[in-house]
Design a protein around this nucleic acid. Sequence first.
DNA 1: GATCCACGGGAATACACGGATG
DNA 2: CATCCGTGTATTCCCGTGGATC
Length: 383
Amino acid sequence: MNVRERIARRRSAHQDRTIVVDRDHLSPTVHRQEPIGRGPVFEDLLDVLEPVFNEHLPDPVAVVGPAGSGTSAIVTALFTAMNEHFGATDRAIGTTTRSTSMPVTWFVTVDARRVNSPFALYRTLLEAVSSEPVPTSGVGTDDLRTRLVDRLERHDRRAVIAIDHHDEPETLSYDRVITLLEPVAASVAVVAVGQEPPPEWTGATVSMPAYRHHELVDVVTDRTSSGLAPGALEHESIRTLADWADGNAHDALATLFGAAVLAMQDDANRIEASHLEQAHAAVPDNGVHIDRALALSETRQRVLAHLIEIDAADQPVRELAATIADQSSLTESTVTRLLYELADRGVLERVPLPSDGSGRRPSTLEPRIPTIPFRVLSEARLE
DNA sequence: GATCCACGGGAATACACGGATG
DNA sequence: CATCCGTGTATTCCCGTGGATC
C-alpha cells in the first residue's frame, strides 16, 4: 500500500465516519508481506534454503510451530519474495539478461486445506510453474501429472514446494504428497509446514516459538494502525487482547476483527471494552483456525452459518438438523450428515447431553471457530 | 465423451437401556 | 448374577447423480 492509498483510506474513513479503514488488515486470514518480529526465523529458513543460491535444491525441511505462531505467514511471505528473485515466467525469458538455459526455481506454497486431491495438487503446481492456463476439469489426473513432469524435467526447471497444513484432518498427508511427487522427485524439494513435523521425521526442522506477549502487542498494533481509524482502539486494549490470546496471533486477530464488527454495528466511533469482551467470548479456547471453516465447500459453510445463527445450546443434533433443514432446501437427513461431518473435522465439537429416556444418548454441537469473523467472511465469500 | 468434484439421501451400523432368559 | 435381546436413537458409510469444463 502506498502513501496515496493510505491517505485516501483515511479520508474516506473520515467521511463515512467508520472505524474500520480496511478490513483485510484486521483479518486473521490475510498475511502481511512483512511479518512483524520474526527476523530470526527468516534467517533460520534462509539457512536451510541456502543451496538455492548455488542453483541446487535444498534438503527436505519441516517448519513447525504451535497454532497461531505464524508459520503460514512466514512461509507465505518468504516464498513470495523468493519467487520474485528466482522464479521466472516464459514471458520474462528473452526480456531479461538471464540465459535461457539457466535452471529456474519456483517457490510454491500449497494450502493443503484447499488442495486436497491428487488432481488439485498437480493442477496447483502446474499453474504455478507455467504461464498457460491449466484446465480445471475435463482432463484426467494422469494427464496433468504428465504435463507437470514434462514442464519440470524437460525444461530443467525446479520447484521448492511448501505443503502448508499437511498435518490437519482431511488434507493430503506429507507421505502422500511425496508419493504423488515421485515422478518429479529430482526436480522438487518439499517443505512441510504444520504444527508437527511429518511422522518419523529425520530431516531438518525449523521451529517457530509462540509469540511472546510484547511481540503479539506489536503484531496487533501493526494491524490496527493500518486497519482501523486513528484512536479507534486504545493501546491498553491491545495489551488486553494480547493477554487473552496467549501467544496465538490467530485468536488475537479474530477477537480484534470481531470487536470491530460489533463496534460498527453499534455505530460506535471506537471499540469499547464491551465489544472486546463480547468478541472474545465468540473465540473458543483451543479452537481451530477460521480458515479451516472458510475452506469448506459452499453447502457446508451454509449449514455452519445456519448453525451459528441458531441458539444451539442444549439442542440435540436431530433438532438442530430439523431447524436448519427447514431453512435450506436440504433434507434433514443430509443436514444431519453434514453436521456430523463438521464435527468429525473439528470445526464443531460434540457435547454429550443427558439421556432423555430411551435410546442412544444425544449430543449437541458447539462451534470451535471464531463465530463473528466467520459469519462476516463466509457471507462475503458466498456473496 | 471424459473427467473431477460436490451433493444428496437413505441404508447400514453402533450404542444405550430395560427387561427377559439361563 | 451374567448374558442376551428388542427397541429406539444416534452416528457412520456408501454410492449414484449432475454440473462444469475440456
